[in-house]
Design a protein around this nucleic acid. Structure first.
Lengths: 207, 207
DNA sequence: CTATAACTGGACTATGAAGTCCAACATCGA
DNA sequence: TCGATGTTGGACTTCATAGTCCAGTTATAG
């Protein structure tokens, strides 16, 4: 095992490349992102790109996917690990919408990569699938907590509800993107979140 | 106005190109579809591609989008123009799922193109947006019919419900694709369709 | 039958993007 | 101070793909 000596300067450059690439992918798609445009945006050279990502563009894409996934998860904290009460679900929803629409993002880095590159790069597909799985598990855990607290029908499948929520996020973004409006995403999300406050501790619901 | 003389043979060739391109896009993405692979799959030559689509790849993509959109709409008929009863909604749902999962499609041609190419080709984006709009309108009309029949809460916004349904379709397919299973799409769809039979003519619902 | 135009084949060019290579510079440990 | 290693710049090669061109073939009109 070789100890990889790496300086702070190198780490910073590497990170700069990853983040700039992520932005370009979201803005212009994976096909519209070339090593030259990344090079230009990061004031780097070809040799640096291949120095830090010997696997070339494919490896860079995978690293970007990992980074974006970690950012996406971080943006949902600490709510995502809570999700035991309706309030925490609401807070999570807010944080998520803010993340997507916060500053000209308008798309899910993970979902975007999933639909664009999964079929061409099996390794990348693996990274994406893993992110989706852990995301789904976090949501399912939240649903289980709500279930235990009696807010959700006991017979409901938590994983199924989690998948429906994820689908609402992905699909909601597809509909929001061309309109440049948040309401389709929010509407889809609220619809998917419906089962979580329908059976509200029984008689709580008026009417 | 020049009368475009065009023979049956030419029309057939043109159509063959469009359909083969559509399949390739769905299978390998827009970036993985090249004029050469299309040429090989259709037993045609470069000159034919540019003879029928002088605008090159971009024009071909737009024609494919139109064709796929018309196919998608046709696959939902006659249910899509009905949608006045819960039975017709169910039939529509069936037809749609069959269309997507019927023979190795596993993705929405429209949604796929929307996320892949909208940002690079404004014209294509227009074609996609128009398809989505008419689709949304058809669904919204159905919701209005259900509303008029008293099956849906009068205060609900039909367009909003239609958008949520479309989001469920798009997102559901995203979740179904890697799993190669129909249930995520079906679950998302059913969740979005929920408001349509919640207020079922009152006492009709057994249990 | 013949002329015109649609249709087809495939070689050719131009371009852009991925990836290679080597020399120069910076930094760290001894 | 002096190597060794990490870091950077940029020219160069290779290759795939979009798009061009023209000659040859088939069909249609008169």
């Amino acid at each position: 095992m070789e100890e990889k000596r790496i300086t702070d300067r190198g780490r910073a450059t590497r990170q700069r490349i990853i983040e700039a690439t992520g932005e370009q992918i979201l803005a212009s798609g994976i096909g519209g992102t070339t090593l030259d445009t990344v090079r230009a945006a990061t004031l780097t050279s070809k040799s640096q790109l291949f120095h830090y990502f010997p696997g070339g563009k494919a490896e860079l894409m995978r690293e970007v996917a990992q980074w974006e996934a970690s950012q996406l998860m971080a943006a949902q904290q600490p709510h995502l690990n809570d999700l035991g009460t309706w309030e925490s679900w609401t807070a999570w929803r807010e944080a998520l919408v803010d993340y997507y629409l916060g500053l000209g993002r308008w798309a899910c880095p993970i979902g975007s990569l999933a639909t664009q590159a999964a079929m061409t790069d099996p390794d990348l597909e693996g990274v994406i699938a893993q992110s989706m799985d852990s995301w789904r598990d976090a949501l399912a855990s939240g649903v289980i907590r709500m279930q235990a607290a009696g807010h959700v029908h006991p017979g409901a499948d938590p994983v199924r509800i989690a998948i429906v929520i994820l689908a609402a996020i992905q699909g909601g973004l597809v509909m929001s993107q061309p309109l440049r409006a948040a309401w389709p995403l929010e509407a889809a999300l609220d619809s998917a979140l419906d089962p979580l406050h329908k059976a509200a501790t029984d008689g709580t619901d008026p009417a």
